[in-house]
Simulated scan of single mutants.
Amino acid sequence: MLAEEVAMGVARFAGATWLGLGIASVAGMSAARAVDAGLLGYQGAWLLEGRDCAEVYSSGGKVTAFKKPVDIFAPAFMVSGKRLRTPMASCQIKSVRPAGDRQVLLLNCANSVAGNEVRVLMAPSQNGALRRYYSDQDPTGVAYRRCS
């Protein structure tokens, strides 16, 4: 799961356990201007299929955020512009490159303890979901559905 893998990568790098980050908005930049064409299908709040969006996210008008208290183990992430946030980390999306029928997202992730570069394999599905793959050899991956 994306949230757990980002957290595990950063935890291994830091060698420590850490607390989740608060969610902050990207100030002064509209999401539409910050989005590369390769990121258009990723914008929004995502949750592992089979989970209830209302258990993880709260919505206040146009803004979606992780529900307080934040479940740091929730298999969820939000993409806004070139930022990807999990319950425990905030990432800048450095690049999106095609890799066959998938895309490789290269992320610079940080939490309150450390930073780490993370490579993520994803592909939009026909049904509007995203599929996250654990490796180049993973034939099925796991599906995330959009909550917002």
Rank of each mutant, 00 (worst) to 15 (best):
D71M: 10
Y42L: 15
V79Y: 03
A76R: 03
Y57K: 08
R83S: 07
Y57C: 07
P69Y: 06
R85N: 08
A45F: 14
E55A: 15
F77I: 05
R51G: 12
D52K: 15
A76E: 01
V63Q: 02
R83M: 05
G61I: 12
Q43S: 03
A54D: 15
L48K: 14
R51I: 09
G61M: 10
V63A: 04
A54I: 11
D52M: 13
W46D: 15
W46Q: 14
K67E: 06
S59A: 12
T86K: 00
F73S: 09
I72G: 10
W46K: 14
P75S: 04
A76L: 06
S58T: 11
S59F: 00
S80K: 01
A65L: 02
V56S: 06
L48R: 14
W46I: 11
D52L: 15
F66G: 01
K62A: 09
K67F: 06
S58F: 04
K68F: 02
R83Y: 04
R85M: 09
P87M: 05
L47R: 13
P87T: 00
A45C: 15
G61K: 12
S80N: 06
A54E: 15
R51K: 15
K67L: 14
E55G: 11
K82R: 12
K68G: 04
C53D: 06
D52F: 12
K68L: 03
P75V: 08
R83T: 12
A74C: 08
S59C: 10
G50M: 13
G81W: 02
A74G: 05
P75A: 04
F77C: 05
P69G: 09
G61W: 10
A74T: 09
G81H: 04
A45I: 14
D71H: 09
V63P: 00
R83D: 06
G81S: 03
K67D: 05
V70D: 00
E55S: 15
F77E: 03
S80M: 02
L48Y: 07
D52P: 06
S80E: 08
A76Y: 04
C53G: 10
L84Q: 01
K68S: 10
